[in-house]
């Protein structure tokens, strides 16, 4: 059962990177992963500010030019900083962000098993 779980998780994470979608979907997906700088707190996709409308146009132009999703993120990161990305990339700054919850999960599991299922001597 446990092995199966781990297996499923691995498959899932693999799947995440294999997303395929057509162009409009890609465009929407990118816009959803960007944070609007004018109405901070909204995604570019959700926002109707002038900035967001133009940015959506830029995204579709870049896709037409043949840029990949990653390249577009990098391009915008270079212009506006990492803040614009809703999906922080794994880097020195974000190791804790991504790994701490997983660590907590496993630590929790270990604590439960040790406390309740391994018979103590004494």
């Amino acid at each position: 059962m446990r092995l199966l779980q781990i297996f499923l998780i691995i498959i899932f994470i693999f799947n995440l990177n294999l997303l395929k979608a057509n162009e409009i979907q890609t465009e929407n997906k990118i816009a959803k992963n960007l944070r609007c700088l004018i109405c901070q707190g909204q995604s570019v996709y959700d926002s109707d500010s002038e900035f967001a409308l133009s940015l959506k146009l830029v995204i579709s132009n870049k896709i037409d030019e043949g840029m990949t999703e990653e390249q577009i993120y990098d391009f915008l990161k270079s212009k506006y900083g990492e803040w614009i990305l809703y999906d922080p990339v794994l880097s020195r700054n974000t190791y804790f962000l991504w790994l701490l919850p997983i660590l907590i999960f496993f630590a929790g599991g270990v604590i439960i098993v040790r406390k309740f299922y391994i018979k103590k001597q004494s």
Binding site: Q5, L8, I9, F12, I13, L16, K32, N33, R35, S43, G81, E82, W83, I84, L85, Y86, D87, P88, N93, T94, L97, W98, P101, I102, F105
Partner: peptide
């Protein structure tokens, strides 16, 4: 925390939560 400690600013949005929560929802 990141901003106070390193003055880097990042955003954490829906993709983060989806990626970390959805797989665990299954079990």
């Amino acid at each position: 925390f990141l901003e106070v400690l390193t003055s880097n600013k990042i955003s954490v949005g829906p993709p983060f939560y989806n990626k970390l929560m959805l797989p665990f929802l299954i079990p």
